[in-house]
Computed example of a mutant assay.
Amino acid sequence: MTSDTPRMSGTPSTFSIGGDYRVSRLGFGAMRLPTGPGSDRGTAIAVARRAVELGVTLIDTAHMYGWGANEELLAEALHPCPDDLLIATKAGITRSGPDGWAHDARPESLREQVEQSLHRLRIERVGLLQLHRIDPTVPLAEQIGSLHELQQEGKIGHIGLSEVTAEQLAEARQTADIASVQNRYNLLDREHEPVLQACEAADIAFLPWQPVAAAASGPAPAVHAVATELGATAPQAMLAWLLARSPVVLPIPGTSSLAHLEENLAAADLQLTESQRQRLDRTALPA
């Protein structure tokens, strides 16, 4: 491979989560969508619908996002969902005071939250249910076991984890099959590189959240340089790097702007050369 050979030309554009949900590798994170009344809500609904129109087949939400309001918004925008659309949600976090939250992955709490998500999303089964955080007060095997019971009952298709270590992932897999992991990860924040490597080895989907967050504070010169060469923005270059990083990586950039949505999704068409990828690989958080 020469230094100017496109890196992504042979990179798959889809990934099969759990072996049966084939989704486009660039998804959409719904967390930023405003859920209140008024014109902002109308825009949020338009953004969700436009994402699907543009080929997004994986949308990420959570019970914690607006304490159910985000799920309700997606149902309002997309119900009945297309057959190829996977809406992934999360459970295991409960409200604590007006602005706080707390872990709660007790079996009865997980069951209640899953039931609520089914009702709010207007579906009979959550295709991908992610444990939002591991509850330190409940044995991990008990938390995963509870989700596995719901899976056997047909209320969950696949089980995912969020913000876990490679060791926790391995422990969870002793109780049930794990289809995905969602950890914070981007070009400038690679703390969870060992988790990504574990996911790649096991063919588990890795959903990096905040995939371009570091761009807002000023990306490294190499990012600007590569973006200029591509005729793209810095966030687009960072998304292209994630897609080239591993075939199991499924970024879920979020936005409440139609223009920003289209900009993000256009990153799927970028092709990094080997030289560009290597230069971005060497980019790290500033000292």
Rank of each mutant, 00 (worst) to 15 (best):
Thr89Met: 05
Ala69Val: 09
Ala102Cys: 15
Gln130Lys: 08
Glu112Gln: 14
Ser117Phe: 03
Ala77Glu: 03
His79Gln: 11
Leu131Arg: 03
Glu115Gly: 04
Glu72Phe: 02
Leu118Asp: 01
Gly92Lys: 03
Arg125Ser: 08
Arg133Thr: 05
Ala105Leu: 10
Ser96Glu: 15
Lys90Gln: 05
Leu85Phe: 07
Ala75Glu: 08
Ser96Met: 13
Arg133Val: 01
Pro80Glu: 05
Arg125His: 10
Leu128Met: 09
Val114Arg: 00
Asp84Gly: 06
Asp84Arg: 12
Pro139Lys: 11
Leu86Ser: 02
Leu128Ala: 00
Ile87Ala: 05
Ser96Val: 12
Ser117Val: 01
Ile134Gln: 07
Gln130Leu: 08
Gly97Gln: 12
His132Phe: 01
Thr94Asn: 10
Pro136Asp: 11
Leu128Val: 03
Leu129Phe: 12
Val138Gln: 08
Arg125Cys: 12
Ile123Lys: 03
Asp135Trp: 00
Gly127Tyr: 03
Pro139Leu: 12
Val114Ala: 09
Leu121Trp: 02
Ala75His: 09
Thr89Gly: 01
Leu118Pro: 07
Ser96Gln: 15
Glu72Trp: 07
Asp104Tyr: 04
Arg120Glu: 06
Leu74Ala: 03
Leu140Asp: 08
Glu72Asp: 15
Gly97Lys: 13
Asp83Cys: 05
Ser117Thr: 04
Ala102Pro: 09
Arg120Met: 09
Ser109Gly: 07
Pro136Gln: 13
Glu112Pro: 00
Val138Thr: 11
Trp101Ile: 13
His79Gly: 10
Leu140His: 09
Glu71Leu: 04
Arg106Cys: 03
Ala105Lys: 09
Gly68Asp: 04
Asp84Ile: 07
His79Thr: 15
Ala91Leu: 08
Leu110Asp: 00
Gln116Asn: 12
Ala77Cys: 11
Gln113Tyr: 07
Gln116Met: 10
Glu72Thr: 13
Ala77Trp: 02
Asp135Ser: 03
Leu118Ala: 03
Gly127His: 02
Leu128Pro: 01
Leu121His: 02
His103Trp: 15
Pro107Gln: 11
Val126Asp: 05
Gln130Val: 13
Ser109Leu: 06
Leu131Asp: 04
Ala102Ser: 15
Cys81Gln: 13
Ser96Ala: 15
Glu76Gly: 04
Pro98Ala: 11
Val114Asn: 00
Leu131Val: 10
Ser117Asn: 07
His103Pro: 10
His132Pro: 02
Glu112Thr: 13
Ala91Ile: 09
Ala75Tyr: 07
Arg125Trp: 02
Arg95His: 09
Ile134His: 01
Glu76Ser: 07
Trp101Thr: 14
Gly100Val: 14
His103Phe: 15
Leu140Met: 15
Leu131Ala: 08
Arg95Ser: 11
His103Ser: 12
Leu74Arg: 02
Lys90Cys: 05
Lys90Trp: 03
Glu108Tyr: 11
His132Arg: 00
Pro82Ser: 06
Ala91Val: 13
Glu124Pro: 02
His119Asn: 14
Ala77Ser: 09
Asp84Phe: 00
Glu112Asn: 10
Leu86Tyr: 04
His119Gly: 12
Lys90Tyr: 07
Pro98His: 13
Arg106Trp: 11
Arg120Gln: 10
Ala102Ile: 10
Gly92Ser: 08
Pro136His: 12
Leu140Pro: 00
Ala88Val: 07
Cys81Lys: 14
Leu73Asn: 05
Arg133Ser: 00
Leu74Tyr: 00
Ala91Arg: 01
Ala69Gly: 10
Arg111Ile: 10
Ala88Asp: 00
Ile123Thr: 15
Asp104Met: 10
Ala102Tyr: 09
